[in-house]
Amino acid sequence: MNKESNLYTIIFATIMVIIVGGTLAYLSTALKPAQQANIQNEKKQNIIQATGFMDKDKVVRDESAEHFKNFVTRRITVDFDGNVVFDSKGELAEGSEEILKDNEKDAFNVNPRAQYRSDDKDKLFPIFVCENEGKKVFVVSCSGKGLWDDVWGYIGIGADGNSVVAAKFDHKGETAGLGSIINEAKFQNQFEGKKLADANGIYKGIQIVKPGSQELNDNTVDGLSGATFTAAGVKDMLSVYLEVYFNYLTKNKI
């Protein structure tokens, strides 16, 4: 057959597209369950890492589902004004910690990354109540935009609703070696012991400042040189989310 002919070209292209498209579609469907399980376990891993109960490096992804079951005692979802829209305590039978797959308001199913576009007032704010050896930590989730793509984080807030116990940040595509440092200990550990409010109990949030530019206090942490926009993204994300959590946690006794 003449390789230059239109017919040959069209037949070749059609067969190629069918083979490649079919292979990719099959692969995507076949691998989806395994990929989803990885993503869910990672979420649990991040939540446990933000509790400060365990050394961050010791929380292995494959064991996180077990830890999640042991530590997370209650899941609450609130809206922008602090009204409870989901509470696992009311929805679930006593002692059951099952995640409601179909309930999109279940705190575990709320994905702050997915609601980036919605107005702040329409966002949902998930809270995970974690308990271990009499210590209570509220792990809250937040998300924003870095320089290239999404950044997100899980913050562990102490029982007073004010002090930060631990923080875990991650990103989708920040520059390796610059913005990507937000998921490393040297950035994350700065948050431990910081406060959401000033000495008078008025909400201040946590500011990320130019590194070395000023004396750090309870409400500030050092940013990253060479990654100004990533740090700014993390700062904006914290300012949107933390105030809602602070107001809810300090006003309600959980």
Binding site: L24, L27, S28, L31, A34, Q35, N38, E42, R61
Partner: peptide, 15 residues
């Protein structure tokens, strides 16, 4: 196609 296959397999088995 190669790159997508590599990416998908990595996501499923070597997350």
């Amino acid at each position: 196609a190669l790159v997508i296959i590599v990416d998908q397999v990595l996501q499923a088995f070597v997350y």
